[in-house]
Simulated assay, not measured.
Amino acid sequence: MDRVKFNDALEMSRLVYGMWRLGDDADTSVDHIRNKISACLDQGITTMDQADIYGGYEAEEILGTALTPELRNQIEIVTKCDIVAPAGRYAGAKVKHYDTSRAHILSSVDHSLRLMKIDHIDLLLIHRPDPLMDHHETGSALDEVVASGKVRAVGVSNFRPWDWELLQSGMKTQLVTNQIEISLLHHTPFTNGDIAFHQKNGQPPMAWSPLGGGALFDTKLSGLHGALQNIATEHDVEIAAVAIAWLLAHPARILPVLGTNNLDRIARIGDAAKIQIDRETWFDLYTHALGHEVA
């Protein structure tokens, strides 16, 4: 499995296991969680993606119950903060909102460390752009958690280039990644400047929902589904692997985040790294996704 270096303190596996559905599984036992992590490690997938809000603010704790010091030393943990929803520890919130204040960021980091029973977070992301963000306060808080050793590196999620630049202007620490929605069914980041911005600045983006929330498996998308299936059959893999290989082929060094609770599917995540998508094949899939040939 290829690895991506973000800075001197952080290196992650090219494929990332997303844990947003961890609490939705009928089996959240320690052994089952460990089996999921082991299935990832067997393929060289060492990076686990969390967020404080996942599972109604419970997914981090579910992961924490399964971590041993030995297991923790084999993985990188990504988590996120700033979404406050009326659930879990924020059940009293009047309305779902974002909070990028210093107090909230510091509190969120401490909650995440305690719930996952770890002494540092490898990568902390601001989950959503906050219209009320004071970039000096937020930036200073992110600098602070890095300086304290509680966080190794920081980044953002769902930010546009101007949101990124605003926050970065209030920081000493360099933001290292932006986790955005990218897939064959959500391909606008390839043309709206999002990926170009990060590629230009050498910041590998992370891709959430790289399978379009499962919509890529819909046979009603006859042209795209058929094109994916033909390649999958040729390589003896599932179409999911082809769709992820399509993202891996891009020079921006995209890191797809894949989440499933099915152990068999987890064990096949790494198949995407075995497929080489050439330029014409990439554009063939892109053409089907667009619904028309490129201009």
Rank of each mutant, 00 (worst) to 15 (best):
K117L: 14
P86D: 00
N158C: 14
A59W: 01
L71D: 11
Y98W: 14
V151I: 08
A87W: 08
E61G: 14
A91H: 10
E137Q: 07
E76C: 07
D134W: 01
R160W: 15
D143G: 00
S140H: 03
D122L: 10
G139Y: 00
S112Y: 06
G139Q: 01
A141C: 10
D143N: 03
A59F: 01
G55R: 00
R152D: 06
S108Y: 00
L125M: 12
K117D: 10
A93H: 03
A85N: 08
E137K: 02
V84D: 03
K117I: 14
R128W: 09
P69F: 11
L123Q: 05
V151Y: 01
I77H: 00
V145K: 01
T65R: 13
M133Q: 13
G155W: 09
R89P: 02
P69E: 07
D52C: 04
P161I: 02
T100Y: 03
E137R: 00
D82F: 14
D82K: 11
I121G: 05
V109I: 11
V109M: 03
R102L: 05
L113F: 12
L71S: 09
V151C: 02
G92Q: 12
G92K: 06
K150P: 08
E144F: 09
K94V: 02
A103M: 09
L142W: 11
H104I: 15
S112F: 10
R152I: 13
R160H: 15
T100N: 12
V145T: 04
I121V: 15
Y57C: 04
M133C: 11
H120R: 10
E60L: 12
Q50S: 10
D143T: 01
K96P: 14
G149D: 08
D110A: 14
W162C: 09
A103I: 12
A153E: 13
E165D: 15
I53A: 08
S101K: 09
A141W: 03
D49Y: 07
L125Q: 09
G92L: 13
W164T: 12
S107I: 08
K150F: 10
V95D: 13
A93S: 04
G155A: 03
V78S: 00
G56H: 12
L142N: 06
G149F: 10
E76P: 00
V109T: 02
L142A: 13
D82V: 15
D99T: 05
S157H: 12
F159A: 06
A91G: 13
T68P: 10
L115N: 13
L113K: 05
L113H: 05
V109R: 00
P131S: 06
S157G: 13
T100H: 05
R152C: 13
R160V: 15
H120A: 13
C81S: 04
A66L: 07
E70T: 11
P161W: 09
V78F: 01
G56V: 15
H120Y: 14
V84Q: 04
R160Q: 15
S157C: 14
T100S: 15
F159C: 11
P69S: 04
G139T: 07
G64D: 06
D130F: 05
M48E: 08
